[in-house]
């Protein structure tokens, strides 16, 4: 009797999870599939997952006046070479790495001392300041985008890396997350460090930072994913200079034009852009789950 109800329960649970998984994975399936197939196959929706991989002719290559034999290639090769040649994808990726890493590093430099002060130092108005931090969590980015843009424009920082990085350097989410984690660190540990002769800054970097690595990794994943994938803000502040484009912005290069839809190369570029995050996720899967459950930890 028990076993039967359990079977039913398991079946229902798994069907719901399976449906969820399909909804989440289907776009990725299409992305990967389109990045492998020829334009004709994409349009007629044939060829299964990988397509027939028959030799096709690159029309632009012909237009460019190159010999026909150079313009014949398999769809997969065409898509991925086009992804890298149509737009400076490598440059975009490097921009993305530079911007996300800078943002994360500065966020940590700011958030750790703030979180330490908010959790372990007693000063007048601390609770008010923490209240403000919580309040700032409620402000959506888009609400302050315009004033931010105007300020950056006034100081002449639009179309620079600074415009991509500076608005994100103070992460109230990071401060909040780290503060919650620091609350669980015993005060004795800090007192011991003080007795040993560490300054307050030394305590932050030599005692709190190493104990907070799990929390930092969790925050790092949130931060890197958010800013690697961000389309909105780069679109606002990068108006002319294509050299500064981040990967999501770079995808606009593949939007349909008079030549017809370039879905193949576009999806190939998307795949390349998504790949680093997928790899990071697979490597840090356990940490990631730990991190998500962390805010309610201990």
């Amino acid at each position: 009797m028990m076993a039967r109800t359990n079977w039913l329960g398991e079946f229902l649970k798994h069907s719901v999870l399976l449906a969820g998984a399909i909804v989440v994975l289907l776009p990725f399936y299409l992305m990967l599939s389109y990045s492998l197939k020829s334009p004709a196959e994409i349009e007629s929706n044939t060829g299964g997952f990988v397509g027939s991989q028959e030799i096709m002719t690159d029309r632009r290559c012909i237009k460019a006046g190159k010999p026909a034999e150079e313009c014949d290639m398999r769809p997969i090769v065409y898509n991925y070479t086009a992804a890298f040649s149509e737009a400076p994808l490598v440059r975009y990726m490097l921009n993305g790495v530079f911007v996300t890493v800078s943002i994360f590093v500065i966020q940590v430099l700011v958030a750790l001392p703030c979180a330490y002060a908010l959790s372990k130092l007693k000063f007048w108005g601390r609770d008010v300041v923490f209240g403000l931090v919580i309040f700032c969590l409620l402000i959506p980015v888009h609400a302050i985008a315009l004033p931010l843009y105007i300020m950056l424009a006034k100081v002449g920082l639009t179309n620079t890396y600074a415009a991509l990085i500076i608005p994100w350097t103070i992460s109230v989410f990071g401060i909040f997350l780290m503060r919650q984690f620091f609350m669980t660190v015993p005060d004795d540990l800090i007192d011991a460090a003080r007795m040993d002769g560490m300054s307050e800054f030394a305590i932050v970097w030599r005692v709190m930072l190493p104990t907070a690595i799990p929390a930092l990794l969790a925050f790092g994943i949130f931060s890197v994913v958010a800013h690697w994938n961000d389309y909105y803000w780069p679109r606002v502040v990068i108006t002319g200079n294509r050299d500064l484009m981040t990967p999501p912005l770079g995808l606009r290069m593949f939007k349909s034009d008079l030549d017809g839809n370039e879905y193949g190369p576009m999806m190939a570029a998307t795949t390349v852009i998504v790949l680093p995050l997928v790899i990071i996720f697979l490597l840090a899967q356990r940490r990631f789950i730990e991190g998500i459950t962390m805010t309610g930890m201990k």
């Binding site: 015993p186 011991a192 007795m195």
Partner: peptide, 29 residues
């Protein structure tokens, strides 16, 4: 300052640096 008073303190929770080995814990002060 506490560190200049030439005192050593043993805490109830021991307060060892969790990321350092025992040897490093002794060396640090």
């Amino acid at each position: 300052r506490p560190s200049r008073r030439d005192l050593a303190m043993v805490f109830q929770s021991y307060a060892l640096y969790p990321h350092l080995t025992v040897r490093q814990n002794l060396v640090t002060p």
